[in-house]
């Protein structure tokens, strides 16, 4: 798949996702330019998770269009997989494979591009040690951890490993659903710093979060409320009252 540099890594056009009581997403449109870092805010139930699920292809919208690098999701399984390979997701629960080593987990991010022989070899031998060591270094982890089982890592190390795995995947689009939710303030700030740092070159970042104090590093803030985009501004333009209005309960 060719991708010209100016194509937006992610474009959503009038996305509609029905819900049980009210629609989960209503006419949501959003475009991420290459290298852009966008924060997604809004109260619980506003549709942030749904929007991210649509963005990474787990959920297909009822109406509207999703474009990755300007291309709609492919019908053919193989091409679709190649598209997915360019979308990296940082999961709130990390979703590391507990039974495997750090190295094997990092290599798991390459499975979309690897054939069976390498995929199987990865379960027998340490593969691509240099590349893995390099990504670990970028998230401030020691290469000595490569041979360790994931279960041996501390909470903070696991967060970094999940991020390193994303780097190893080398996606064009980074998605993260409240990655900072359960972290202590210091770790949250560190991780966010790392994430923002990774969105460079053509790689765009879309991240949902709850905390207004962490919005500074983003290029744009998009706010959802009741399934609609209610605000799209740069962090510096954002006022405290706007944020307060966003989170006010609907009593």
């Amino acid at each position: 798949m060719t991708s010209s540099p100016d194509r937006p890594p992610l474009e959503l056009r009038a996305i509609q996702v029905p819900g049980r009581m009210a629609p989960r997403l209503m006419e949501v449109s959003l475009q991420l330019r290459p290298g852009e870092r966008v924060a997604l805010v809004g109260p619980s139930g506003a549709g942030k998770s749904t929007l991210l699920a649509v963005a990474n292809g787990l959920l297909s919208p009822e109406a509207g269009e999703v474009l990755w690098n300007g291309v709609a999701p492919a019908r053919s399984r193989r091409r679709r997989r190649r598209q997915q390979a360019l979308i990296g997701t940082l999961w709130q629960d990390l979703r590391l494979i507990e039974e495997l080593t750090v190295q094997q987990n990092l290599n798991a991010a390459r499975l979309a591009r690897w054939g069976w022989p390498r995929a199987l070899l990865n379960l027998v031998l340490p593969l691509d040690t240099a590349a893995n060591a390099a990504v670990l270094e970028r998230v401030d982890l020691s290469a000595l951890l490569l041979g360790q089982p994931v279960t041996a890592l501390s909470g903070g190390q696991r967060q970094r490993l999940a991020l390193a795995r994303l780097l190893r995947q080398d996606p064009l689009l980074l998605l993260a659903d409240e990655p900072l939710a359960h972290l202590d303030p210091r770790l949250a700030r560190e991780l966010l710093g790392l994430l923002l740092e990774q969105a460079r070159g053509r790689r765009a970042l879309l991240l949902s979060l709850h905390r207004p104090d962490l919005l500074d590093g983003f290029d744009r803030v998009v706010a959802l409320r009741q399934g609609r985009v209610v605000l799209d501004a740069s962090p510096s333009e954002l006022t405290g009252s706007q944020l307060a209005a966003l989170y006010r309960s609907e009593a």
């Binding site: 989960r24 998770s49 749904t50 699920a53 787990l58 959920l59 999961w91 709130q92 659903d177």
Partner: peptide, 8 residues
Amino acid sequence: MTPLNFRR
């Protein structure tokens, strides 16, 4: 992404 985990 909790809404996506369908339980049987």
